[in-house]
């Protein structure tokens, strides 16, 4: 047992007590209960959400601040480092499965449901009795043309640019890692800054694209199964990019302060993994949502 007052890198660090988790739970509850209230049209919901959000931000600063401090003061040995790594890897795996649910919905709708509604194979009677005349081509807002006509976002415009942006950002973050490994703090920070800039630029373009879709293309969350899958997938992805970019920003400042050394920089790596994950998800999106 290594105690908080005796940094001993040879023993496993077991933190003794931690107020931040309960703060996090309170924040999470306030945020989600507030969101639920808002959805029910209760005005107080917004306040609760804001308060919850603020509490979570405080919690993140406090919690990560403590971890950073312990790390910088050398409390963590390589075993702790491995625990963190495993934690991050499995967390990313859980995120992959979260996206898998939405990709699953997309594939199911395209491969099975829409053809069935159009009367293929198993759907003969469904089509004949309920949806006669439905033309089962993707993209579709369903046999009832839910949400009215819409146009899709062409793959080889903004989405292609965004693909290039994210691919480039994957490169820059790798460059940053390389700089970190050879101990060049200045170029590390610069490469990170480039990655952050690319990340936020992606989010900006995505936001523009959403506005365009809503205002000019008539494509909304309510545009049947196409709109639903399109916005859920790209929307959750966009949220993850935003989160990743914020994390990269934090890492950039930490790098500037000299928190990372060539052989001890899990914080950096964890965020870099996350960034690559976001990148890979986008590639899937680009292919299956936009191109195919």
């Amino acid at each position: 047992m290594t105690h908080a007052d005796t940094p001993n890198p040879n023993r496993y660090f077991v933190p003794h007590n931690a107020p931040w988790p309960i703060v996090g739970s309170i924040g999470m509850t306030a945020l989600l209960a507030g969101a639920a209230m808002s959805m029910n049209g209760t005005a107080a919901g917004k306040i609760s959400m804001l308060a919850g959000f603020a509490i979570i931000v405080v919690m993140l600063f406090g919690w990560f601040g403590q971890v950073v401090k312990e790390s910088v003061n050398g409390y963590y040995n390589s075993q702790v480092d491995t625990s963190f790594r495993m934690g991050m890897i499995w967390f990313i795996f859980s995120e992959v499965m979260f996206f898998a649910a939405f990709f699953g919905a997309l594939f199911y709708a395209r491969v099975f449901m829409v053809p069935w509604l159009g009367g293929e194979g198993h759907g003969v009677m469904t089509n004949a009795l309920l949806w006669q005349g439905f033309d089962p081509v993707w993209p579709t807002n369903g046999p009832a043309a839910v949400g009215g006509g819409f146009d899709t976002v062409p793959a080889f415009g903004v989405p292609l640019v965004n693909t290039l942006i994210l691919l480039t950002s994957g490169l820059t973050v790798t460059m940053a890692h390389w700089a970190l490994k050879v101990g060049q703090r200045r170029s590390l920070v610069l490469w990170l800054a480039a990655t952050v800039a690319l990340g936020f630029f992606f989010v900006y373009l995505q936001a523009e694209e959403y506005i365009h879709a809503y205002q000019e293309l008539g494509l909304t969350l309510g545009s049947g199964i196409y709109g639903s899958t399109f916005f859920m997938l790209t929307g959750f992805h966009g949220m993850h990019v935003t989160l990743g970019a914020i994390m990269l920003t934090v890492i950039m400042f930490r790098a500037a302060k000299g928190h990372f050394t060539a052989d001890n920089h899990f914080g950096f790596e964890g965020v870099a993994w996350y960034w690559h994950f976001v990148d890979v998800v986008w590639l899937g999106l680009f292919v299956f949502v936009y191109v195919v």
Binding site: M39, A101, F102, A105, Y108, A109, F112, M113, V114, L117, T126, L130, W131, T140, N141, G142, P143, A144, V146, G147, T220, L221, G222, G224, I225, Y226, G227, S228, T229, F231, M232
Partner: peptide, 20 residues
Amino acid sequence: MLLTDRFFDTTFFSAAGGGD
């Protein structure tokens, strides 16, 4: 998806919109 079907007009689980 249930939540968005309920509150945000998505049609994941409604055949009319091409869902199921």
